[in-house]
Simulated scan of single mutants.
Amino acid sequence: MMINEKMVARVMRKFHIVGVHLRKKVTTTMPEPSDAGLFQRDFTADVPIA
């Protein structure tokens, strides 16, 4: 019996089977430790901008 890619995909969907992801997540941006206080600043405006 011949089995094609569509049949395999259909069976995998039916039984909720997913393929294995072999790649690791690569972190390209390292946060600067001195930037940790940026979110604790007061960003309220004195007057509305016209």
Rank of each mutant, 00 (worst) to 15 (best):
M2S: 13
L38M: 13
V26R: 09
R13P: 01
G37M: 11
T29S: 09
R23S: 04
R23Y: 03
T44I: 02
M1C: 08
K6E: 15
D46W: 04
T28H: 09
Q40P: 01
G19I: 05
I17Y: 11
V8G: 05
D42L: 07
P48N: 03
H21P: 03
S34K: 14
L38D: 11
E32H: 13
H21A: 04
Q40A: 13
L38V: 08
V8T: 13
M12G: 02
V26K: 09
V47D: 02
P33R: 15
I17P: 05
V47T: 01
S34T: 15
F39S: 07
G19A: 08
A36E: 15
R10Q: 10
E32F: 05
R13C: 05
D35S: 15
T29H: 13
P48T: 04
T27P: 03
G37F: 12
K14V: 05
I17V: 15
H21F: 00
M30C: 12
M7D: 12
D46Y: 04
T28G: 12
T29L: 13
I49H: 02
E5D: 12
M1K: 06
A36R: 15
E5I: 00
F43Q: 10
P48M: 01
L22C: 04
D46Q: 05
A9H: 12
P31H: 12
A50P: 04
F39P: 03
T29E: 13
T27M: 01
T27C: 05
H16M: 02
V26W: 01
F15T: 02
L22D: 04
K25H: 06
G37H: 12
M30L: 14
A50L: 03
D42A: 04
R41W: 09
R23C: 02
V20P: 00
G19E: 14
K6F: 13
A50T: 01
M12A: 09
S34M: 10
M1F: 08
Q40V: 06
K25Q: 07
D35C: 07
E5Q: 12
P48I: 03
I17Q: 08
V18R: 13
E5M: 10
V8F: 06
M30D: 14
N4T: 10
H21D: 07
P31R: 15
H16K: 10
K6D: 15
R23V: 00
V20H: 00
P48V: 06
Q40W: 08
K25A: 04
H16W: 01
L22E: 01
V8A: 11
S34E: 13
F43H: 09
K25G: 00
L22R: 04
E5S: 11
D46H: 00
A36S: 15
V47S: 00
A50E: 03
H16Q: 04
F15E: 04
P31K: 14
T29Q: 11
D42S: 08
A36P: 06
T27G: 07
